[in-house]
């Protein structure tokens, strides 16, 4: 009896690894494929017969760093994204606190309105936004990108943080109040630490959206001064050299890498559970 149970357990485990392994392979395939295209010579990309073991080449690597200011693009991307996430958090945390805690008329409607800004097709506001930033004199700056990314992401960052805040037992805040804490203290010392996983989750998703943003970036960034990784990709598609696939693949991989590293670094926070033990089971 017992040995039989152990056996099924072992089989289960093997099955689990098989399924997870297959899924990992499926997810990683495009990444591996991109890397392999990025690190092969241009002549081995489009061929009549597939090449399974291409020769290794750093042609594209040298090209993106030497012929283009890729370092600057990468820096632009990173600064614009980090800035936008900071702006989002500074605005979203108090907004979410208000939406989740205080009673006032139209609270639900405001919440929904905030979310609904996300439902609009971006192209509709592209032209007004262009004129807006031109008037502000921010065209072709990463400040504009920061603001745009922040605006795009603000709604769902607020929404995610709000949902985490709703999960915090009200008794926690009551305890802090009777202990003598004011609203700001409660937010800073009790609420924010308790919803840290939510804040991190929202930030990562915002980063992913931001690094992939293309339309507005192209609109704002008219010179390499404010180009980001996503717009830089477009550099390799036109011109006299034709479509430079290995450079595209390599840049795409580089754009993917920072977010990937961030996610790996903080993955233990990406799950819930920090509020465990706060109140009775």
């Amino acid at each position: 009896m017992a040995s039989q149970r152990r056996k099924t357990k072992g089989e289960n485990l093997a099955l689990r690894y098989a399924i997870l392994g297959a899924w990992a392979l499926f997810c990683l395939m495009p990444v591996v494929w991109f890397l392999s295209i990025g690190l092969r010579p241009r002549t081995e990309i489009i061929t009549p017969t597939p090449i399974y073991w291409p020769s290794f080449s750093l042609d594209a690597w040298h090209m993106i760093w030497e012929d283009w200011p890729m370092g600057k693009y990468l820096r632009n991307s990173v600064l614009a994204i980090i800035g936008s996430v900071v702006i989002d958090l500074v605005l979203a945390i108090p907004a979410a606190y208000s939406l989740s805690r205080f009673q006032y008329r139209g609270r639900e409607d405001i919440g929904f309105y905030i979310l609904s800004t996300r439902m609009m097709a971006p192209a509709i506001v592209a032209v007004p936004i262009f004129f807006l930033f031109r008037t502000l004199g921010l065209l072709d700056t990463i400040w504009a990108l920061m603001l745009i990314y922040a605006a795009i992401n603000l709604s769902f960052v607020t929404w995610i943080i709000r949902s985490y805040m709703l999960d915090i037992p009200k008794e926690l805040e009551d305890a802090a109040k009777t202990d003598g804490a004011g609203e700001i203290r409660i937010l800073w010392e009790i609420i924010i630490p308790a919803i840290l996983p939510g804040i991190i989750t929202a930030s990562v998703i915002a980063m992913i959206f931001a690094i992939n943003e293309f339309l507005f970036t192209l609109l704002i960034a008219s010179t390499p001064e404010a180009y980001t990784m996503s717009v830089a990709l477009a550099n390799f598609t036109g011109g006299s050299d034709g479509v430079i696939y290995n450079a595209i693949a390599l840049v795409a991989f580089l754009a993917f890498l920072p977010i990937f590293l961030v996610v790996v670094a903080i993955q233990k926070h990406l799950s819930r559970g920090l509020t465990m033990g706060a109140v009775k089971g």
Partner: peptide, 28 residues
């Protein structure tokens, strides 16, 4: 509540989850 100077034990404990017990007791 903050200005009434009462100390309360909550039915559901309401300990601050991110603080150690020492920090919890120190909070007030």
């Amino acid at each position: 509540a903050r200005d009434r100077d009462v100390a309360m034990v909550f039915q559901g404990y309401a300990l601050y989850p991110n603080m150690t017990i020492y920090e919890n007791i120190r909070f007030p």
